[in-house]
Design a protein around this nucleic acid. Structure first.
Lengths: 204, 204
DNA sequence: ATAATAGTTGACTGATTAGTCAAGACTGGT
DNA sequence: ACCAGTCTTGACTAATCAGTCAACTATTAT
């Protein structure tokens, strides 16, 4: 069997970078190719459309982050501490990206998903699928916190979805206002949403 | 003085409709003109770019909604009840739009703002400016609720910003998942964020 | 070494895009 | 009636876009 190529990965990486920093709509196939060092023919050898590439890029991003998520939300970590570590991790990552590109970029899945949701069911469904996986981390931590009496959450899934939505709203605001401030304050808001009894019980 | 025209309003209305249902990027000047019944020359008579039109459309939308916001957040209404009425109002509006176009559309300023934030400072700043006005309604209601001992919110502005972000996250999720469910449940989440003592104290 | 296969290339199409412009049409105040 | 000024028109440019294709090249298992 013949030559092997890392072009597929280069293309998905380039696409996610550009779409995250700018948007889905303003990221042209040409620009993706240029950043990936590919010609358009190569692009269409691997993907049959920009839409399909985007779905692949989001899945690839998930696979890159999964191990880290597993570590952050390890059952060996106290449940509320998992959230603190996760929020810190995202905050630090976005702050680092801000130094490179000058902007707080928020969550690429929210930006892309909101942009294409009424027009591209493939990408929309991919975002939904990945989010369902991410929410499971929240749900499990909430269930553990409830079992330990740290919070009252008779419906962990609903609570997880609510917190997930609140967090993504905060990420979106941080992007639009280009301000990490809200992100830093979110840990407190999260504890409010979770209904934690005594705030200062959880350290960072 | 010669003829008067409602074309400016027709154009901003058409633009907001299309951008809300689809996106900023996929809404072409041609499409806006077609819906408004204008030719491209008219468009560029009133606006010098799509970006400028968008800012004008968002401001026009604000002016359309302001009176309603003033009524919903009237100081004559019990403070926590203001939120309930506001969330109901947005919910009903989005549900009605869903019947027309098949999708839950979320908040246009979040969708548009997130899409253009790194590329169009004019539109970005417009979104920020309008949001600052909207947050004032939240802030005032929170301050009143605090004064009445319904909640503990020593920093009403921060609390208002946090709640605003959470709500917009929920709107974004509702759009991407095309599901009103989260929106219906948000009233409870809002009470959690606000730190309301007894949930059922507020009726709807 | 060679052939089957995976990957690459660049030139191409046709559609769509934002934005321009000069000429003309309509209308309200006088 | 008529004109100043507001608005409308349609044809235009030049750029960019997604996507196609046939020919080509590099690799690797045998």
């Amino acid at each position: 069997m013949p030559r092997v190529s890392d072009m597929k990965k280069r293309l998905t990486d380039a696409a996610l970078d550009l779409m995250w920093e700018n948007s889905y709509g303003t990221t042209s196939v040409e620009a993706i190719c240029e950043r990936a060092g590919a010609k358009k023919g190569s692009f269409y050898y691997f993907f049959k459309s920009k839409s399909e590439l985007t779905a692949a890029a989001l899945e690839a991003e998930w696979n890159k982050n999964k191990a880290n998520m597993d570590a952050l939300f390890s059952p060996t970590v106290p449940p509320l501490e998992r959230f603190n570590r996760y929020f810190d991790c995202v905050h630090d990552h976005l702050a680092e990206l801000q130094e490179k590109c000058g902007s707080i970029l928020g969550c690429p899945m929210l930006s892309i998903g909101s942009e294409v949701s009424t027009q591209d069911q493939g990408v929309r469904a991919t975002v939904e699928r990945i989010w369902d996986r991410k929410i499971k981390y929240f749900e499990s931590a909430i269930r553990d916190a409830h079992a330990q009496g740290l919070i009252v959450a008779p419906d962990p899934q609903a609570k997880a979805r609510a917190l997930f939505a609140c967090y993504h709203g905060t990420l979106a605001q941080a992007r639009i206002q280009n301000d990490v401030g809200l992100l830093r304050d979110f840990k407190q808001t999260a504890m409010d949403v979770l209904g934690v009894k005594h705030t200062q019980a959880v350290s960072s």
